[in-house]
C-alpha cells in the first residue's frame, strides 16, 4: 500500500485507573498544528475497560474522533495485550502518524509497536513539525544534547514518535465539544507470563524535584561531592530541592530521580538555580519552562546564560557560600 494511503493523526490516549495522562492533552494540542498542515483528522486511541467517559475530555482537548477498544485484558496496562490491540487497530485504520507520551508506559509500549508494525519510532521528541520539503520530522537532542536532530520516517507508515511530557500547553478545553466514538472489537488475551504483584504510591521522601517551586541544581563543574551540601543548604533556605544535571548522576553523587533533562525529569519550578551547569540542550529541555532562571558559571560563554534571566560569571565555590551566609543574615 502506498504511503499516501495512510491517513490520520493518532494520539495514544494513555490512561491508568481511568485517569488520562496529562501528556495526552499536550500531544493533542500539538496535533492541532499538524492537522492544520495536512488536513488529517486527529483520533485519540483509548484502550482499557470502562473508559468510555474519558472520550468527552479527549474531544474537549482537540480529538476529532475517539477510537475505543475496551476489553478485560486491557483493564490495566501490560505490554503484550496493548501491543496486540494497538497493532490490530493500526493495521485496520492505517493512520499516517501515531504519537505516544514519552512516559514510562509509552516508552514500554511503543517500541513493541515499532516491531509489530515494521516502522520507525523516534524516541522522546521535544518538537514535531513539517519541514521545507513537507516531510514530517521529530526533533530530538542528539549526542548528549549539544546538537538537535530532525528525525524523519520517509517511507514506512505509520510514522511514530514518543513525545516528551511538558513540551506543549494543552488547548483551552472546548466546552460541549463532541465527536465520533469508533468502538472497535479487538482480539486480545491477558498476558499469562507477566504479572504486577504489587503497586504502591511512590514513597514521598520529601525531596522529589517534580512539583518543587524552587530548585537548586548542580552540574559537571561541581568539583567535590561535599560541595553539594552547600547547594543543599541554599535549597533548604529557600524551601527548595536539590537536583542535578546528568554528570553528577552518572558519577553516583545523586540518584537518577534528581536528574533534570532529556534522560531525567522535566521540571517547571518558579525559580531554578543552575550552579556550574553549562546548559546542554539535553539539560535545557528539562528546565527551560521555569519562570525564573538564575545561573552561576565561571565560563562566560556557557549556553545556560542564553536562557537565564539572571547570571553571574563567577566561581560557585565562593559565591554560593557567600549567598548562604547573606540569606541567613537577612533571615536572622
Amino acid at each position: 500500500m502506498a504511503k499516501e494511503d495512510y491517513r490520520g493523526i493518532w494520539v495514544f490516549a494513555e490512561q491508568q485507573n481511568g485517569k488520562l495522562n496529562d501528556t495526552v492533552l499536550e500531544i493533542l494540542a500539538k496535533a492541532q498544528e499538524l492537522k492544520a498542515h495536512t488536513g488529517e483528522d486527529i483520533s485519540a486511541v483509548l484502550l482499557g475497560k470502562d473508559v468510555r467517559p474519558l472520550a468527552e475530555t479527549l474531544f474537549a482537548y482537540g480529538a476529532d474522533k475517539v477510537i475505543l477498544a475496551e476489553h478485560d485484558a486491557l483493564a490495566s496496562y501490560s505490554a503484550r495485550p496493548y501491543e496486540a490491540a494497538m497493532t490490530q487497530l493500526a493495521e485496520k485504520h492505517k493512520p499516517s502518524i501515531i504519537l505516544y507520551g514519552a512516559t514510562s508506559l509509552g516508552r514500554d509500549l511503543a517500541p513493541r509497536l515499532m516491531v509489530s508494525l515494521k516502522t520507525g519510532l523516534t524516541a522522546d521528541a521535544i518538537d514535531l513539525g513539517f519541514d521545507q520539503d513537507d516531510v514530517f520530522y521529530q526533533t530530538t537532542p542528539a549526542y548528549g544534547g549539544s546538537i538537535l536532530a530532525h528525525i524523519v520516517i520517509l517511507e514506512a507508515r505509520p510514522q511514530m514518535a514518543t513525545v516528551r511530557p511538558m513540551m506543549f500547553e494543552p488547548i483551552q478545553p472546548r466546552a460541549g465539544a463532541s465527536g465520533e466514538i469508533v468502538a472497535e472489537t479487538v482480539s486480545v488475551e491477558p498476558d499469562a507470563d507477566y504479572e504486577v504483584l504489587e503497586t504502591a504510591p511512590k514513597q514521598d521522601t520529601g525531596d522529589a524535584i517534580e512539583g518543587a517551586q524552587v530548585i537548586v541544581a548542580g552540574g559537571r563543574g561541581i568539583k567535590e561531592e561535599t560541595d553539594l551540601e552547600t547547594l543543599r543548604e541554599l535549597a533548604s533556605l529557600l524551601d527548595g530541592k536539590l537536583a542535578a544535571s546528568r554528570p553528577l548522576v552518572d558519577n553516583g553523587w545523586l540518584n537518577h530521580d534528581k536528574q533534570i533533562g532529556q534522560s531525567g525529569a522535566t521540571v517547571k519550578p518558579r525559580y531554578i538555580f543552575n550552579i556550574a551547569i553549562s546548559g546542554s540542550v539535553q539539560y535545557q529541555v528539562g528546565m527551560q519552562n521555569a519562570d525564573c532562571i538564575i545561573s552561576v558559571n565561571h565560563t562566560k560563554g556557557a549556553p545556560i546564560f542564553d536562557i537565564s534571566h539572571y547570571g553571574a560569571v563567577a566561581d560557585y565555590r565562593s559565591v554560593i557560600p557567600a549567598l548562604v551566609e547573606e540569606i541567613k543574615r537577612r533571615k536572622a
Binding site: I147, D306, H309, D315
Partner: peptide, 29 residues
Amino acid sequence: SPSSTKELLEPPKRNADTKYFSGSAEEIA
C-alpha cells in the same frame, strides 16, 4: 532502518535578556 536523521542543527540561540551580577563573591551574593 525506517527512520533516519534528515538534519543536524546547532540549537537555536535564544537571546534571553540576561541580567548579570558582578563584583566580589559577597557583592554578587
